[in-house]
């Protein structure tokens, strides 16, 4: 397993009252994404635990793309991954953020 962390600064704060949200399942080729609000001057921190070792650069690219598209801040995003493809990772991130911004569970 490998642990990766990414940090992005300068995002606009996401909805203030949003509740922690989980998307996806920790299963083969899949991942779970937990999004939580945290006041940290617009920063986003992303922590990834992945079963697939050695894909740090690909994760970096997927996360860069995610931040570029949403530009959200004040978030802690935590991921448990079992070898999901970049497309699946992006999809789960988007699902988690949509639910989070929708304010639902």
């Amino acid at each position: 397993m490998e642990r990766l962390t990414f940090t992005y600064a300068g995002g606009r704060p996401a909805t203030r009252n949003a509740k922690a949200t989980l998307a996806g399942v920790v299963g083969s080729g899949n991942l779970e994404v937990l999004v939580e609000p945290v006041a940290q001057d617009g920063a986003v921190t992303i922590e990834v635990t992945t079963a697939a070792v050695g894909f740090g650069r690909i994760w970096q690219a997927v996360m860069d793309d995610f931040f570029a598209r949403h530009g959200l801040g004040d978030l802690r995003i935590s991921i448990n991954d079992v070898g999901a493809t970049p497309a699946v990772v992006s999809l789960r991130l988007d699902q988690a953020i949509e639910t989070y911004l929708g304010g639902g569970q």
Binding site: M1, L22, E32, T50, S78, N80
Partner: peptide
Amino acid sequence: LLQLDTPAAFDDG
């Protein structure tokens, strides 16, 4: 699970 290098889930399933 973590001790055996196996991915764990936030709610343990």
